[in-house]
Amino acid sequence: MKLVGKTALVTGAASERSIGWGIARELALEGADVAVNDIAPSEALDARAEELAAMGRRSLAVSADVTRPERVEAMFAEVVQALGHIDIVVSNAGIIRWQHFLDITPEELRAVVNVNIMGTVNVCRAAATHMIRQGNGGRIIINSSVQSDVQFPITPVYGATKKAMHTLVGALALELAPHRINVTHIAPGWVRSPLNDISPELQTPEGVEAQRRVIPLRRDGHIDEMGRAVVYLASSDGDYVTGSSIRLDGGLAISKYSL
C-alpha cells in the first residue's frame, strides 16, 4: 500500500458513478484516510464515507459549494480537525453545458466558469495554504478533461475552462515547488459519470456506439482507472511529477476519425 498515513480530500465525490468516487476509493485502497465532498449534504455522500470506513479507513463526508471560498475554508478546517492534516487534495468538482459558440448565454458561461475555474481556485488556495503551514509538502491534483488537450465545438466554454488547466496547473506548480507541493492534472476522456448523463450525443444506443467508434480502444474509461492515475500522482511514485498531466482517454485525443 502506497498511501498509508496520508490523508486526502476529494471534491465532487457523492455519486457512486463519479470520477471523484473512483479516485476516493482507489486512494483508500492504498491506505489513505479520505474525506469526500459534494455540493450539499446527501445520503449518497454519507454512504460514500461509510464505504470508506468499511474499508478500515478514517473517513469524512463534508459538503461545501466549492464556488464559495468561505465554505471551502470551513471544509478544510473540518477535514484537518478530523484527520489531523491534509496531504492530498483532489479538485474534481466540475460542470458542463452543451451549446454552440453563437448560442452561449452569459448565465451559462458564468455557471461553468464559476465552478470549473473559481471552484478550482478556491480549493487550490485552501490546499496550498494548509500544506505550506504544515511544512511537509503535498499533492494537489485537478481533474481536468481530455478537453484540456482536444476541444469540441459543442462544449466551447467547458473546453476553455479545461484547456486553461494546463496554464493554471503550470503556474501553481512553479509557485509551489519551493514548498514541495506537486501540482498536476488528469485528463479523462469518456467516462459514464453523471456529468455525461445529459450529453446530447449519448442519448441513443447509436450515439453511444458512435462515441465508442471514435475511441481507438473502443470503450469508455472506468472510474477506478482514473483513480489509479491519481494514486500514482499522489504517491511517492509521482515524486518527480509536477506541472504536467496524464491523459486517460483510450486514445480519443489522437483520433480524428471514427475507426
Binding site: F101, V113, I117, Q151, P156, V157, G159, A160, T161, K163, A164, H166, T167, L168, A171
Partner: peptide, 9 residues
C-alpha cells in the same frame, strides 16, 4: 488562465 480560455474558445 484567462488568456488560455479566450484563445481556446
Amino acid at each position: 488562465t484567462s488568456l488560455t480560455m479566450i484563445w481556446s474558445i
